[in-house]
Design a binder for these strands. Structure first.
Lengths: 150, 150
DNA sequence: ATTAAATCTATATATTTAGTAGATTAGTGT
DNA sequence: ACACTAATCTACTAAATATATAGATTTAAT
């Protein structure tokens, strides 16, 4: 299961994607729009900034902005920053590789093959999905379009 | 990431799959073979028994046995018992469905579509993988075969 | 100078994870 | 019937993680 923090992060990024190219966006604006506790959101955005996804501006007229186009922010990138490894175990992680302390021998581990398959299935979805996709997938706008067509 | 408990469970089940049809297996035997803390393993096996995967016999000559063929014990079944939902969020879970308290409106949630895709990618691997697969995938026997062929 | 905004530091609480200890119950073989 | 063995149950504990909150500080614009 994805953490609440990660969901908050993705929702916040969606808002920033909507405002992409329109200048800095206030934390308070995002917090209110997505019902995220403001102080918690601060920490999340800071984390995303320190990892190169966002840029920030202090002082009056400041706020947060995407540092790259929505189509370049993949879910895997975001989830790695917020929740850590995407792989189901460290021993098959590409970005957080480490030995599993509960495994006597990595070469003979019976689970590795399955864990790798599982990891790849995840990556196949999460690498390809970007903020662009949740913009398009936003049901609110779909609904509006449907209503217009009706 | 999968919990240590879940890894223990899968490894223990692998042992039980190896001994399938040969009568009860001792907790101590499994614990030692897979280097799992015995008391912790007890709880895990009990949990699997209470959920219909294992059957147990008390007293002398007792132990644990698979209640079904290795090919019928899927990873998804095991992981649901030990770690809970496989889906990345409750709102897209098939076995543990629940509203996400951080979501104002399920219909307009921008993440749902992606979460569903992600869930399906997971299930596609985990439903199809069974204990039978980790028996075959066990590198120890592969190594032996390779050595024999060399 | 005043104001508005992000940033930093510290703290708090609840939940989950991983594990231990000891008593109890139920079967087996003698 | 009895001793033994193995699962089962109950109750803890420690450490890590998740989910926040409070308040002071820094930075920039007007």
């Amino acid at each position: 299961m994805i953490s609440k923090k990660a969901k908050y992060a993705l929702k916040a990024l969606k808002v920033l994607a909507e405002e992409y190219g329109k200048g800095p966006v206030l934390i308070s604006y995002i917090a209110e729009k997505e019902k995220i506790p403001k102080k918690f959101l601060e920490a999340i955005l800071l984390d995303l900034r320190n990892n190169g996804v966002l840029q920030s501006q202090k002082g009056k007229g400041g706020g947060y902005m995407l540092r790259m186009a929505p189509a370049d922010v993949s879910f895997s990138k975001v989830l790695r920053i917020i929740d850590g490894p995407i792989a189901p175990a460290l021993c098959v992680s590409m970005f957080f590789y480490g030995r599993c302390d509960d495994c006597k021998d990595e070469e003979t581990c019976s689970l590795r093959t399955v864990l790798e398959k599982w990891r790849d299935a995840n990556l196949n979805v999460l690498d390809k999905t970007t903020l662009m996709d949740i913009l398009r997938a936003d049901n609110t706008s779909e609904k509006i379009i449907t209503e217009l067509e009706a």
